[in-house]
């Protein structure tokens, strides 16, 4: 029996294996491609542009975009193109890491709360408490306490998002665990952890993907706000948030200082959202079928 030797391929592997699969998941290709492009541009920033993002040029302040400075220069004469590309490294990292962290912690806690009454009673009160504190205030408090570095900023943003994920996952678990197919699996003697991972967690994926894409965008913005408030990364370090914050006072005279980092931020959020939609469709066989059926 083929099933015994080779388990059915995961959606991702099946996708890679067949060209037809690729054609069908247009959203996955477009979203993934755009995100990959942005990540590559940021990672290879030093090769793409030779200019130093930190170099101040008092004589070239607020230059409009031209062939020397593709995106123009900011109020200190730094090259906006170079700063945006280099800034992507930090911003994308913060966005992806904090969203991943929040999703992972929130899902684990939400699953436990959905299945155990005791955990539910304790954890959900903590979650309620966390939700009562404005998330930005919480992040500011944490960063000012620990000091600004990648770890503290990522965790500060993630902690503020965890309660939302927890509530979302718990809600799904509470509905799905009453489904006959979960009961049936329980009747087969499947132990609770496996039951959670195999039969309940997949139902959480669709809403979770949507929430996570939203969190990535929100985290990039939150990092920007932290920078703007002066508790984030030091202002000279190029991040999209810092660039936007510094461009704000000169926006009317030099719109390019805001427009270009804004475009990159927007493109990232768009890419992540499209990717999320594609993933959701691929991960649900019922949706996958509908996609197939529509000409």
């Amino acid at each position: 029996m083929a099933l015994a030797s080779a388990p059915p391929p995961s959606p991702a592997r099946r996708l890679l294996a067949t060209g037809a699969g690729l054609a069908r998941s247009r959203t996955l290709v477009i979203g993934g491609g755009l995100l990959l492009l942005l990540v590559l541009l940021s990672l290879c920033a030093s090769w793409v542009t030779a200019t130093d993002p930190l170099q101040i040029r008092p004589r070239a302040r607020l230059r409009a975009p031209d062939w020397t400075y593709l995106f123009g220069t900011d109020s200190l004469g730094r090259d906006v193109f170079s700063r945006v590309l280099h800034g992507g490294q930090v911003s994308l990292m913060v966005g992806l890491l904090s969203a991943a962290l929040a999703a992972a912690v929130g899902t684990a806690v939400g699953l436990l709360a959905g299945i155990s009454r005791l955990v539910d009673a304790v954890v959900m009160r903590v979650v309620d408490g966390l939700m009562a504190i404005p998330s930005l205030l919480l992040a500011v408090a944490i960063v000012s306490l620990v000091g600004p570095n990648l770890l503290s900023i990522v965790s500060a943003i993630a902690i503020a998002e965890v309660p939302r994920v927890t509530r979302l996952v718990r809600g799904v678990v509470l509905t799905v665990r009453e489904e006959p197919y979960v009961r049936a699996a329980e009747g087969l003697g499947i132990p609770t952890p496996l039951l959670l991972v195999r039969h309940i967690l997949p139902s959480c994926i669709a809403p979770l993907v949507v929430q996570t894409t939203h969190m990535i965008a929100a985290a990039i913005l939150a990092e920007a706000v932290l920078g703007f408030l002066g508790v984030g990364f030091p202002p000279e370090l190029p991040t999209w948030g810092n660039i936007l914050a510094e461009g704000r006072p000169v926006f009317q005279r030099a719109p390019w200082t805001i427009v270009f980092p804004g475009l990159f931020l927007g493109a990232t959020v768009l890419a992540v959202n499209i990717l999320g939609d594609g993933l959701r469709d691929r991960l649900d066989p019922r949706l996958a079928r509908t996609v197939k059926a529509t000409p």
Binding site: P8, E179, P180, Y181, V182, P285
Partner: peptide
């Protein structure tokens, strides 16, 4: 319709 996990073969 409900007693088989829709996501599993």
């Amino acid at each position: 319709y409900k007693s088989l996990n829709p996501r599993r073969h």
